[in-house]
Structure formats: structure tokens, C-alpha cells
């Protein structure tokens, strides 16, 4: 029984870590800010929750499992809010959601410095 749980949690942990890497790859590879947001949301949902499930299966006391659950709840509510805040700020800041090419190399911080 405990071997089965170990294997299950190992699968969850490994898949979650691979999803984290895919998400980081998405943040690097995708062409503009709005598409990168989708890459980032893989880490916030799939990656984070699979890792947490894997850790809950390995938890030895009830309190540890509860704390992992609380981390999950906090991430569940804050991650989409933070994503939406970035997206909305970028939309107001003048990035175009329909034209990835327009969002390249317009570094306002660089412009301010000169």
C-alpha cells in the first residue's frame, strides 16, 4: 500500500516538475507578453497543484497536509488575480493583444533613461 502511494506521489511530483520546466520554456519561447501569460499559467495551475498533491501524499502528519492545502488555496486565489493584474496593466499600458509583433522591443524603461 505504501509503495503504491510512493509511486503515485513520485509520478505527481515528477510531472509537476516537468510542467514547471515546460512553463518556463513557454515564458521564454512564446512571442509576446499576452501569449507568455498562458505559459506562466501552466506553472500556476498544473505545475503547482501536481507538486502539492505529490507532497500531500508524502506528508507524515495531518498538520503538514493541512498546511500544503492552505498553500494550495492561497495560490488558487492569488495566481489568477496576479495574472489578470499584469494583463490589465499591459492592456492599459498600450500593448496590443491582437498583434504580437507590435509588442517587441518597446522598452519604456530604456527610453526613460536616455
Amino acid at each position: 500500500m505504501s509503495l503504491a502511494i510512493d509511486i503515485l506521489s513520485g509520478i505527481c511530483l515528477f510531472t509537476g516538475a516537468v510542467l514547471m520546466i515546460i512553463s518556463a520554456l513557454g515564458v521564454i519561447r512564446l512571442p509576446d507578453l499576452f501569449t507568455r501569460l498562458h505559459g506562466a499559467s501552466i506553472a500556476d495551475t498544473g505545475g503547482a497543484f501536481l507538486l502539492l498533491i505529490g507532497m500531500v501524499l508524502q506528508a507524515d502528519t495531518f498538520l503538514v497536509a493541512i498546511k500544503l492545502g492552505l498553500i494550495g488555496i492561497v495560490l488558487f486565489f492569488t495566481a489568477p488575480t496576479a495574472s489578470h493584474a499584469v494583463a490589465h496593466a499591459a492592456l492599459i499600458g498600450g500593448l496590443s493583444p491582437d498583434d504580437p509583433k507590435a509588442n517587441q522591443g518597446k522598452d519604456e524603461a530604456e527610453e526613460d533613461r536616455t
Binding site: 512553463s23 503547482a48 500544503l68 498553500i71 496576479a82 499584469v86 517587441q104 522598452d107
Partner: peptide
């Protein structure tokens, strides 16, 4: 290139840090 990209990257980095600490 835009500041929003940097903030997004740091936000994802933070989510991963939470799990790394756990």
C-alpha cells in the same frame, strides 16, 4: 523587452520559489 514581461517572469519565479521552499 517590456517591463510587464519582467514583472510576469518574476511572478512565475516567485510561484516556483513557493514550491521550492516547500
Amino acid at each position: 523587452p517590456t517591463p510587464y514581461d519582467r514583472i510576469l517572469a518574476v511572478n512565475v519565479h516567485g510561484t516556483m520559489t513557493v514550491l521550492l521552499i516547500a
